[in-house]
């Protein structure tokens, strides 16, 4: 075992932690600056930039749209991903590995390419409403996470427990809900989390769909930043961090409880 008091290791760990945390800490500090530029050191302390967020309609509607899109896209990815994983792991399908790679392929393509392709094909050529295209794009972003995480836990699950359920009188449909789902619950929650965070923070895909009709939060922040270089951006970043951390905490709590009962 490694010595816990290994000095080199401790130093490196602290350095890396600092590297990750420092920018976040700086953002938090600058959000309270009473000057109208993002700069350090700060001259005074104010909450006015936080108040300013709510004066900016793009931020409010952007947050709402981003939230709705992230929820729908994550939900859709689970709805389609879970049965797909079930089929891939339970039935001896021909070309199963081919399907597996196909489902994971969106991770291989740069998101900006997906965004552009969707804009060109779905929005312009097929004249699909922007909101629908946005959902499609974010769904593609989410699906690989669902496939990856849930495949792992399906393979870990003893397939005999499902059979035991059938023997006990459960139809395969009922057995799926009573036996399979509860046992992959942890990875479903984790997959949902990954989907939600990735979709909510996504810029490349949302950027192409951003326009007069629809505002997403990350492009709205980017847009604001281009016109005004003031700490409102820092303030909203802090709020987003708190929001994401809160979600993580809730999920951790949910999974944590599950672990105790196991």
């Amino acid at each position: 075992m490694l010595d816990r008091r290994n000095k080199t290791l401790t130093t490196i760990s602290i350095l890396i932690l600092a590297l990750i945390m420092l920018p976040l800490v700086l953002v938090v500090i600058t959000s309270f600056n009473n000057e109208s530029s993002i700069s350090l050191p700060i001259k005074g302390f104010t909450f006015s930039w936080y108040a300013n967020i709510f004066q900016e309609p793009d931020f409010i509607t952007g947050f709402e749209t981003s939230l709705v899109v992230a929820l729908i896209a994550s939900g859709l990815a689970l709805l389609i991903g879970i049965p797909a994983v079930y089929a891939l792991t339970r039935y001896h399908l021909q070309h199963a590995s081919w399907f597996q790679s196909f489902f994971l392929s969106p991770t291989l393509i740069p998101e900006i390419v997906i965004g552009f392709a969707l804009y060109q094909a779905v929005v312009i050529n097929l004249r699909t409403p922007v909101f629908i295209s946005l959902i499609i794009g974010h769904f593609l972003l989410c699906l690989p996470y669902v496939i990856r995480l849930i495949t792992a836990s399906m393979l870990l699950m003893d397939s005999h427990i499902e059979e035991a359920g059938w023997i006990c009188g459960c139809s395969p449909q009922k057995g799926f809900f009573l036996i399979v789902l509860p046992n992959i619950k942890t990875s479903i929650i984790a997959a949902f989390m990954m989907c939600f965070i990735n979709s909510f923070n996504n810029i490349p895909i949302s950027l192409f769909m951003n326009g007069p009709s629809i505002t997403m939060l990350p492009p709205a922040i980017l847009n604001y930043l281009q016109n005004n270089y003031d700490p409102t951006v820092s303030a909203i970043s802090v709020l987003l961090m708190v929001f994401t951390a809160l979600m993580m905490f809730l999920v951790e709590k949910a999974i944590g409880i599950k672990k105790i009962t196991e």
């Binding site: 003893d158 059979e163 035991a164 009188g169 057995g175």
Partner: peptide, 16 residues
């Protein structure tokens, strides 16, 4: 299978 009134014990126990 789910309409047959059998009991089964598996090698891996297969408890829920």
């Amino acid at each position: 299978v789910y309409k047959r009134n059998f009991g089964m014990v598996f090698q891996s126990y297969a408890l829920f």
